[in-house]
Design a protein around this nucleic acid. Sequence first.
DNA 1: AATGAATGAGAATTCATTCAT
DNA 2: AATGAATGAATTCTCATTCAT
Lengths: 201, 201, 201, 201
Amino acid sequence: MPKIEISDIRRRELIAATIATIYEQGFADATVARIARRAGLSTGIVHHYFRDKDHLLEATMRSLASGLGMEIAARLASAERPRERLEAVIDGNFSATQFTREAVTAWTCFWSQVPFSERLSRIQRVIYSRLRSNLLHALRQMMPAQQAEDTAFGLITIIDGLWLRAALDGEGLDPVRARALAYGFVDTRLPAGSKSNEAAA
Amino acid sequence: MPKIEISDIRRRELIAATIATIYEQGFADATVARIARRAGLSTGIVHHYFRDKDHLLEATMRSLASGLGMEIAARLASAERPRERLEAVIDGNFSATQFTREAVTAWTCFWSQVPFSERLSRIQRVIYSRLRSNLLHALRQMMPAQQAEDTAFGLITIIDGLWLRAALDGEGLDPVRARALAYGFVDTRLPAGSKSNEAAA
Amino acid sequence: MPKIEISDIRRRELIAATIATIYEQGFADATVARIARRAGLSTGIVHHYFRDKDHLLEATMRSLASGLGMEIAARLASAERPRERLEAVIDGNFSATQFTREAVTAWTCFWSQVPFSERLSRIQRVIYSRLRSNLLHALRQMMPAQQAEDTAFGLITIIDGLWLRAALDGEGLDPVRARALAYGFVDTRLPAGSKSNEAAA
Amino acid sequence: MPKIEISDIRRRELIAATIATIYEQGFADATVARIARRAGLSTGIVHHYFRDKDHLLEATMRSLASGLGMEIAARLASAERPRERLEAVIDGNFSATQFTREAVTAWTCFWSQVPFSERLSRIQRVIYSRLRSNLLHALRQMMPAQQAEDTAFGLITIIDGLWLRAALDGEGLDPVRARALAYGFVDTRLPAGSKSNEAAA
DNA sequence: AATGAATGAGAATTCATTCAT
DNA sequence: AATGAATGAATTCTCATTCAT
């Protein structure tokens, strides 16, 4: 049984405070002081747990990515057929715990930093690769390689586009509608036999 | 013949410098001083032409939006059939002058600010409405209303997703591939007779 | 007949605009640009008529002083007896044209600058000397020299104090009350035969 | 024993530095940087203890007012008869610790700001009310109400006028002469029995 | 582990002044 | 005589980071 370190607790609290602060004040106004205050800690301690602000932001993005990854992994674990694996990826991306207003807002902020930060860029690449690999693994069993490649690319684009929409539309985006678009896209690419509505029928 | 005001020239130069600086240094490091220097001007003059930095950024986003809008409008002007109108919108979004690395980078930055700025949010809403209205106008002549609605939403999501992809992928995104995804999405939603490959045939 | 130079007109306009701007925006916010705008002129022209801002301010203080001086001089011209000369000085200081909200506000600002500006300090000294000399001239004919000296000092202090009060009290100071205090002070210092109420009787 | 907070110490130091800097450089040149340097601190810390420059200035004016108030209060504590209360107020205003060149200079600066700052205006009103109330309390026991009112007004005007004189006259003002004027004014208003020279006799 | 005082660099903004037109 | 574009220094304020306690 792994001991729960107090340092891990603090780190988690600070990451959560970072996400909350970005959501409430915006990326530019998410200062170390404000994040620390939100976590109920002092300014100084932040640098005890994270080397500097960049490392805290990096850890935050990584944490968001890992939350998403675990959500998907959990669903993949109980997926057997290719179609189910696809659904695991899509549903994971729009699950109630991940597809939140806080998360989409934070993601949009991190995306805007990616082109200027090698660290964030690396995280972004890892997420993309993992997502693509998951999708290809399923799609290749359902269609020719090139078509699978294109479908994976399209699906990732749609997922990202939906997250962006959710951040841009003040009122938030209906996860049902989001999933519907993603499923709809996949369905038109699949051979007749593996469509979801037929599976449901 | 409208006189070319020097103030219009300066404003344009400053907006261009803003986009370039954001692209090269990132949103956070796009300081007024750096933008001014890039425009070959002094810091002070920026506030002579734009009340403050927020207004300059707003004008920049507006300028990007208007560039995109004009690109699309120009193509719409010579479009007659619904299918052509669709193509005008898509092609406008991925034209060589608009779908640049500078532009996609700047857009990603502005998107990240939208949730925290009523001004930018308003611009974003106008762009979205215009795009949606253009698409619906064409799509309603090709399919039932609800389906047109969904297709427009999907297409916008894909377009935004592709712009985001272009910003996130270091090497840039092939506009041909981008267009292919968008066209492909539309084609699967259209009745057989109006597909692009058949039109081309 | 002296020709009225346009430069004199401009100078007067700028001085008037300076007083008005100080009154409306405060000394710190009375910028050259705002003063010029209020005078309906451009920023640049201010430096054509006044070497720099300091000179404009100096001219403004001088103009206020000269207005006050002329108001007093006019009354002194028709004063014959010492008592009338005293009244001329007091009434001049609280006349409707000089004892205005604009003027008292501007004076307070200039006073605060006096200790740090040799130029303004010199003007201040001239005003003080002139006032003192006018008062002494009258008072020495009514009382012993030392007593005249003290009375002049007291009266000047009261006059300045009243101007200050007028600036500090938001609602403005009743000139009747102001004059009453000044007259009252003088009366208590005078031998019975020359009091104002008796003179009026 | 109340713990002496370091924040109180710093605040006091900064306020003292503000007064000194205003005295030496003038109100306009009393920049945050200069004040901080004079206090031996960095610019940044000023905003740690005072929200912004306005708050520092407000605290400084308040501190001056409170110094004066305590000086008067201390004398009032040992005053028994009305006449002694009057003396307490006057002497407090011209005591060696309060009637300094630094203080009179700073006051003149603050007075010039009063008409443009609601905050400073409020402080000014409080000071005035307190002074007036102290004086009326004593004067009403020595003369009719209306006359007490006028005398209080006159005395306050003279006190302010003397402070102003002290700031304007380069060489400084003799506190003995200042007190003499104030006492002389009061004496002429009092019934014979309560004059100071007679009391001293 | 934790605090928060303190620093100092750097940001936006203002403004007097100059100068080409 | 007049404009207003342009400059660049100066100012206030913010913030990440450090460090003594």
